[in-house]
Simulated assay, not measured.
Amino acid sequence: MLPQRTVVCKGINFARMCFLVNCLKRFKSSQQWLSRQKADPYVEKAKIYNYRCRSAFKLLEMDDKANILHPGQTVIDLGASPGSWTQVAVQKTNSDGADTTQPIGTVLSIDKLQIFPIEGATIMSNMDFSTIQAHDKVVEALNGRQVDLVLSDMAPNATGVKELDKDRIIGLCYMAIRFAALVTKIDGNLLFKVWDGKEVPILEMDLERFYKSIKILKPKASRSDSSEKFILARGFRGIQRPLQNGRWG
């Protein structure tokens, strides 16, 4: 019996050791994240301009280059929490009516997570945009309007397995493309995030069948060590055939 007890004790000690190692790794990662946040000028800038997070400056920079947001537009922000892209969209489309000389736009924001209210935006929290129920609610909220621009800064929670994480974000991209195809007006646009990888050229080829032009954008506000980039698909041609299983049929 003594050897068995020894093995059990060793097992317990090993489990505790693994737990402690994982805790140390998480602590180190958290410390690195905090240090990076403190040194990041966009984090402080977001506080100054009252944006919910630094990602607002990615959209602002891409809009400066590509000129995709205008007063009076109808825009949908997918995976919008905490809402910084929505804040930018509200300002640029004048959906809050702040500028009485410009047309008033419409901004809808959707996320599985809670999004705190943003003046000028219709918030759809705790909702999976890929479901039929979400699509029906969006169509109801649009009240006959079609969408000028679909935005997506979505990314999956990282598993730490590089290839798996890339597959997951590609899956999100195709879901965003499918959603956009169902609500976007002819000549409308789509802007979404992707991580660099061998799957991206295939994604671009699929997009080229349904949009007039495809452009890759990498804003300066994206961290230099990040593999993220953004695909801007302009000039939606319409759907020639149905979408199946998240991919073009």
Rank of each mutant, 00 (worst) to 15 (best):
C53S: 08
T131M: 05
G97C: 02
S55T: 07
F129W: 12
E119C: 10
T6M: 15
S30V: 14
E140Y: 13
V21C: 03
S29C: 10
C23M: 15
T93L: 04
T106H: 10
A15K: 13
K45N: 08
I68Q: 02
I104H: 11
T106M: 15
D136E: 14
D64I: 05
I118C: 07
T93N: 01
R26Q: 07
E61T: 01
E119Q: 15
D63S: 03
D40H: 10
P103G: 07
D96K: 09
W85H: 04
V8G: 12
R5A: 14
P103Y: 06
S55E: 08
S109D: 01
V90S: 00
T74I: 12
H70T: 08
I118W: 02
T131N: 13
Y51P: 01
W33V: 13
D128V: 09
N67Y: 15
V88G: 03
K47H: 06
M62L: 13
L24P: 03
E140M: 11
Q4G: 13
Y49D: 12
L34F: 06
K65V: 11
S81W: 00
G97R: 09
Y51S: 02
F27M: 08
E119P: 05
T106V: 12
C18I: 13
N22C: 11
F14Y: 11
I68D: 09
L59D: 06
S55G: 10
N67Q: 10
M127Y: 10
Q114V: 13
Q87G: 04
M127C: 12
Q73H: 10
Q37G: 00
A39H: 07
A141N: 15
K58W: 01
A89E: 00
I76T: 03
I115S: 01
D64W: 02
L113N: 05
Y51Q: 12
Q87P: 03
Q91W: 08
S35L: 14
G11W: 11
D77I: 06
M124C: 13
A121Q: 04
Q4Y: 13
E119H: 15
S125R: 06
K65A: 13
H70P: 07
Q4T: 09
I68A: 02
L20Y: 10
I12D: 02
